[in-house]
Every structure is written in structure tokens, then in C-alpha cells.
Simulated assay, not measured.
Amino acid sequence: MDRRNFLQATTLAALAQAAGMARAQNDWPQKPLRLVVPFTPGGGTDATSRLIAERLTVLERWTVVIDNKPGAAGNIGLDAVAKAAPDGYTIGMGQTSNLTINPWLYPKMPFDALKDFTPIAEVAAQPVVLAVRADSPLRTLTDFVKAAKARPGQFSIAQAGSGTVGHLAGEMLARRAGLQVLQVPYKGAGPAMTDLLGGQIGLYFGSSVSVMPQLSGGKARALAVTSAQRLPALPDVPTVAEQGFPDFEATTWVGLVGPAGLPADVVARLNAAVVKVVARKEVQDKLALEGSVPVTGTPQQFDAYIRAEHAKWGALIRDAGIKLD
């Protein structure tokens, strides 16, 4: 084969390969998707992930398989996503803790939260609720701040564990209000709520999911929510920001991420599908039942939000000297 024919053959082969790759991407997905959930079955992140997976299966006719990989506050599951092939067939449900808090608490992380993932779409956010027993004399956040300032060090706030958003929300409030309070970490939301209702502790900063049943049952009362706006499920409960602390916001959020280098067209298709799912009334109704607020946007907006949250929590953790027990 002379040089001219060789170049023509090489060019044709390259064009055929490019066309084949484009066709393969346009036909994506051609096999089931694996959605890694970095927490155990039955929790809030797992429930939201299964809701999204089920609706993607119905609306897009994709097969989405849930793969629970708990451990190390979500680090193990997200590490599996970071190390997966960037072909769109392995995605993960990222969260506040594993993407923006853990990097500042763990001396050694298995991944770089800002470099090893492709943000796809935020899904939902859950504010933290400051709750007391129904018979508590504290009826507003202002009541608590005044009482805590009058009796420094005599108030304790339960939270579901060191490094949780509830823990950090309590630290943020204490610093903003100039309070001396004792943070009491529990091994989960259940024990914390049990001690609140039993009178062993006076206040609990917990996720809306863990607090809603007791609020609905009249056993607990909410003093404030930590979202930027009031929670639709608790319209009569003012935000922390409304009660004298402008711009105060602390939420647990979840959103889909993939490995770094995910093809842009795959990211766009996943984002569009998730936005469509979250916009469905039945999905929003289910999220509202657990105190979650649906959140959607572009991959670029989600990326910017992750980076902002990473910086915010990092500054608080450094300034407060927070360490894992």
C-alpha cells in the first residue's frame, strides 16, 4: 500500500471509530446503572436513593440497581464511585458528610472530594431542627439563647454523632450567639431522641427525618429550622435566620455524582432525567413526608454548591477545633 492509500485508509478507520464512539454514547445506557449508596439500607439517604432509582426506571425505562456500601461515614461507598470507570454506569449518592465535612475531619481520605467526582444533580435537602420536649418551658429560639446566656455551660444539646450536620449546626449557633453549651454526641438519631423525650437532655439538633414523627405525635416541639426558608412540612416553625441570625443555614443534602471525567453528554442526560424525576408531584410529596425539600439545578450549579459547602464547613471545623472522638 502506497503512502497516499495508507493515509486514506487510516483516516477512514479513525472516522469509523469516532462514529462508533458517538453512536455508543448516543445509545447510552446499554446496560443497567449501578447507584452506590454509601449508607445502610433503611436510612434517609437510602430511602431517597431508592425513590429516585425507582422513578428513573419507570420514566426513563433504565434499570438502576442500588448497591449499598456503608462505612466510614460514607467514605467507603464514595471511594468505590471515585475509582469506577467514567462511563456513566456507576454513579453514587453523595451527601453533605462525605463530600464536604469528612475531608476536614478525617486525617486521611481515600479520595479528593473536589477532584475525583463529576457532580451530576442535587436531589434534596433536609434542614436540621432544634427540638425540645413538648412540656419544655422553651418556646422559641430566643428563649433558649436568653436562658443559655443566663446560665453558661448548663445547657446540653444532643446530636446524632460527632461531625454530623446537627453537631456542626449546634457549634455554629453557639459561636454566632456567643453561648457556652455542651454538645452531647449520640450513636445515632434514635438514642438522642429517646433521651430528649425521657428528659435526660433538654435539646436536640437533629435532621428533619428523625424529628418529624415526634413533632407530628405531639411529643416534641420545634424551636427553629436551619434551612434558608421555612420548611413546607413545618410552616409555623421559623428559621434560625429569622430569629436574629441572618444567613444562618445548615442542611443535609444529597445529590448524584459520578467518577471524574464522566462524558459531558452522559452527565447532561443523567441531569435532565433526575430533574424530571424530582419535578414529579408524587416524588415531591414523598420527600415532603420526611421533611425533605426537593432541589434541582444544573451540574455546574451543583459543583459550585459543593465547593461552597466544603469551604463553609472547613472554616467552622478549623475555627472550632472539632475533632472526631
Rank of each mutant, 00 (worst) to 15 (best):
A16R: 04
L270V: 05
D135A: 11
E290C: 15
K312S: 06
V165W: 08
L196Q: 13
T226E: 03
A308K: 15
K276L: 03
E309L: 11
S156N: 14
R4T: 13
M212L: 08
L215S: 12
I201K: 00
V145P: 04
R280N: 10
A22D: 14
V278C: 08
Q95G: 11
R269N: 06
N68R: 14
I76M: 05
L196A: 09
A53R: 01
G170T: 07
D236K: 05
R3N: 02
F248K: 02
M109A: 05
T48S: 12
L182P: 03
W62Q: 07
A222C: 10
A311P: 06
L130M: 14
A121C: 11
L256Y: 14
Y89E: 07
M193A: 05
D319H: 15
R176D: 03
A125K: 13
Y106W: 08
T100S: 12
G206S: 10
P232I: 10
F248N: 03
A85K: 14
Q243C: 08
M109K: 12
G218M: 05
L56R: 02
K276V: 00
K31Y: 09
V240F: 10
K219P: 05
G261I: 06
T40A: 14
L234C: 11
N102H: 11
E54D: 14
Y106P: 01
D135P: 13
R307N: 06
V181L: 03
A174V: 05
T118D: 00
P107M: 04
N271D: 12
E309C: 02
A53E: 07
R151I: 08
S208Q: 03
Q180D: 15
G71Q: 04
K276F: 01
E171M: 14
V123D: 04
G297F: 12
S97Q: 07
P246S: 09
T142R: 10
A82G: 07
N26H: 08
H310C: 08
G202E: 12
N75S: 15
V58E: 13
P232G: 08
G170R: 02
L256P: 00
K219H: 15
E249R: 06
V123Y: 02
I322P: 04
L12C: 04
N5T: 01
G88I: 06
V58N: 13
L138R: 13
S227V: 00
E309H: 04
W62C: 09
K69R: 12
A174T: 09
Q284V: 06
T164P: 00
R175Y: 15
Q95K: 01
P32E: 03
A272H: 07
M93A: 10
G42W: 02
W313Y: 13
D303Q: 14
D285T: 13
A308Y: 15
V129E: 02
T11S: 14
V274H: 00
F111P: 00
V266P: 00
Q17K: 11
W28R: 01
A222F: 03
S210H: 09
H167K: 08
D236Q: 09
N5A: 14
A134D: 10
T57Y: 03
L173R: 05
A304R: 12
M109L: 11
M93N: 04
A260P: 07
E309A: 07
V128Q: 10
A82V: 11
R61G: 09
R307K: 13
T10Y: 06
G163H: 12
G77D: 08
A80G: 15
T194P: 01
T164I: 10
A264S: 14
Q180I: 06
A268T: 09
L114A: 02
A192M: 13
V237S: 11
T45G: 08
F248H: 01
T45C: 07
